[in-house]
Design a binder for these strands. Structure first.
Lengths: 330, 330
DNA sequence: ATCGTGTGAGAAAAGGTTTTCTCGCCTTCA
DNA sequence: TGAAGGCGAGAAAACCTTTTCTCACACGAT
């Protein structure tokens, strides 16, 4: 079913058919309607390849990621797709692990297929993908991974998210707020810890460790075995740690949230909602991030100018039951 | 950088350039080499759109899924991508939730873009995607979702997987093996339960519930509060339930694996590995499934014949510490 | 009646590649 | 020496769509 068939069925030339369908050119209103009607009847759909060949726009973008679990990439992907489907844009997903060769192959495949742009995404903000995207013939937007000089980079505002969490604990009356978090060499960890310090003061120490439940367990063990007063709240670097913390507290007979409030980070539904009690957690708004990234790369593809630099998107607090209190505005 | 540029730089016609690069046609070895060398030097990469327009092959396929978390789709996607990247095929990922309209839009977008085929994937084997793919102009393969009459469908062999798990427990000397699993209306649940019955006999009941940790907890509660002998092993319908079971047992002072062995299903790394002790679990080989699906849809796209029907791929047991014993072959 | 103007519609080129067909020339054999 | 055959390479069509250009015609005005 090509435009030839439409033209033939309508008794017009292909030029006229094309113009009728695209609402361009001059022609009798009756002719235009007839062509459209017939196109609809025979189920004509224009070949995007032919169209792309001419227009230099493929209505296709690539999403490159090294996030194997999809923990971060999936929400980002959902946001991108949601934002772009209205514009008729489809998304190539390329998971490249941390293999530079694989990354190169995928980038080249995408370029061959004339993608209108590429979104690079990852699993942490302070690492680059193992492939250089700095001098590609198509626009590149970085979302949740470190970008190059003069690029457009989107990230969550972790400091604001951390403040949100700690201020929420303060508002609930907590005063001895501890922070159990991931490895200090993560930029996000330092940023969250610093924001935490800003609000909570230095009543309690920051405990750096790894992104695992076991670390949450262990950290609780070391805090509760030390002499002196215990924290009445714990702000955790991610939901997995928070889960370990909650489990460890329960095992010690410490009640959550009555004795100790716990806040997580990431709002990873699958962890946060299954914890007992379900975790109050900071949501980085990854779907929003994806949506923004999609719209931005589209704007660049259309030649619109976009201010380069890092754009931070706000986090929000999702209140469940691990803190007590039921709404961040109460 | 088009083939025109290559031809001009090499001082030959575009036909000759094309033939040189594709190793077709007749020409002097020296000419062929020169063209190739120059193409490499100026970084020529053929435009896949133009090529696809002519060859009716876009080297692009679509992956349609309604699995929001990506729990099942991500491994499948990884397998597809891994199998097809060697063939130069890229994958459009379309997450359609359960929205028929959205599904329709994505399918049409993919068809417009001339995908060579579509892989439909989902989150359970006995439900269809909310969009009809039965009479598309491109081949369709179903992976981990129910297919239509006369289609090619790939799924895991859950019965075999369940047998693997229960036989492993038996081999470890367990005799009273319980089965705590998901909702009975899932086909996989019935299939696994039936295979379990076949090996374990009816010493212990099958407990149907929901796919959540809380259900694992609850089920352990109900078993341990009943009078009489307790199970010495529990085969769980998925890892989340298994995690709930393990946690509940620990809380009751029942040791895992010394007193009770626990096996999960899905081998969801993020759950199985974080449980204490880490879960022995049945892996459905979703990556293999994806790989097979990719190769199959490719074969169909190339016009090779593929036997329609349901193809079951074997599961394997991943041994961690929740059962005791360290290797399925010891 | 003629010129100009505006309107409807078609012809043709363009986009990048592959493939078939054709052509000229050189070699080889009779 | 002439014919046949093989080899190297180019011309052109094809894929499908969009867009610009051109053309024919009718109508109003001079």
């Amino acid at each position: 079913m090509t435009i030839h068939d439409v033209a033939a069925a309508a008794g017009v030339s292909i030029s006229t058919a094309s113009k009728a369908l695209n609402n361009t050119g001059r022609m009798g209103a009756e002719t235009r309607e007839r062509v459209k009607r017939i196109a609809g009847e025979i189920g004509f759909r224009p070949n995007a390849l032919a169209r792309g060949l001419l227009s230099k726009r493929s209505f296709t973008i690539g999403l490159l990621t090294n996030d194997t679990y999809g923990r971060f990439t999936l929400p980002v992907m959902a946001g991108i797709s949601e934002a772009l489907v209205d514009h008729g844009v489809s998304v190539f997903l390329c998971a490249i692990e941390d293999d530079p060769a694989l990354g190169q192959i995928h980038v080249e495949a995408m370029l061959d297929k004339q993608v209108d742009g590429i979104i690079a995404s990852g699993k942490r903000m302070d690492r680059r993908l193992p492939v250089d995207l700095s001098s590609l013939p198509v626009p590149v937007v970085y979302a949740f991974t470190e970008g190059t000089e003069n690029s457009v980079t989107l990230r969550s505002d972790d400091a604001q998210g951390a403040r949100l969490a700690v201020e929420w604990l303060v508002k609930l009356g907590r005063r001895r707020i501890a922070h159990i978090t991931g490895p200090e060499d993560f930029f996000s960890v330092r940023e969250r810890a610093s924001a935490y310090r800003g609000v909570a003061g230095d009543v309690e120490p920051v405990l750096y460790g790894i992104w695992a439940e076991s670390w949450g367990h262990e950290a609780v063990g070391s805090i509760w075995s030390r002499p002196g007063e215990k924290p009445d709240a714990i702000f955790c670097g991610n939901d997995q740690i928070a889960r370990g913390v909650v489990d460890a507290l329960r095992e010690r007979g410490v009640r959550v949230p009555e004795d100790v409030s716990v806040v997580g980070f990431d709002n990873w539904e699958i962890v946060a909602a299954q914890t007992r009690p379900p975790l109050t957690s900071v949501d980085m708004g990854l779907k929003e991030l994806g949506r923004e990234a999609g719209l931005t790369v589209l704007a660049l593809a259309e030649g619109r100018r976009v201010e380069p630099g890092v754009r931070k998107l706000p986090c929000r607090l999702v209140v469940r039951q691990s803190c007590g209190g039921m709404s961040p505005t109460e």
